[in-house]
């Protein structure tokens, strides 16, 4: 049974709801965790939530541009992970900790 293109049997609102739940989970994770690696993982959760939205709307409007934008989001996510983990390693080298509460040099 091949689903022909634009017969989306699952309503778009389901995908948006799923995306909203995952995004809020990532947001709460960024706020409540102290481990900086988990904070970066939560940012990945939020990026994935937006990707689900992009693909669902791309299917809904039958326009492939949404999937191209997911491609760019992936690029940015990869760059963010590389730079973010390098920053974490540099921070760990200077403070021997990855607890975000330890890093308050800019806070007064």
């Amino acid at each position: 049974m091949v689903d022909v293109g634009y017969c989306m049997t699952v309503p778009l609102s389901y995908y948006i709801t799923l995306s909203a739940v995952v995004f809020v989970t990532g947001l709460v994770g960024v706020l409540i965790r102290r481990n900086i690696i988990i904070i970066l993982l939560s940012v990945e959760l939020m990026l994935n939530a937006t990707n689900i939205n992009f693909v669902a709307f791309s299917q809904h409007f039958q326009n492939v541009a949404g999937q191209v934008f997911v491609f760019f989001t992936l690029t940015v996510a990869a760059a963010e992970v590389a730079v973010g983990l390098a920053i974490i390693i540099a921070l760990y080298r200077s403070k021997s900790s990855i607890n975000v509460d330890e890093f308050r040099l800019l806070k007064w």
Partner: peptide
């Protein structure tokens, strides 16, 4: 949803 909650 389950695994993203577990991540946090």
């Amino acid at each position: 949803v389950l695994t993203s909650v577990l991540v946090v």
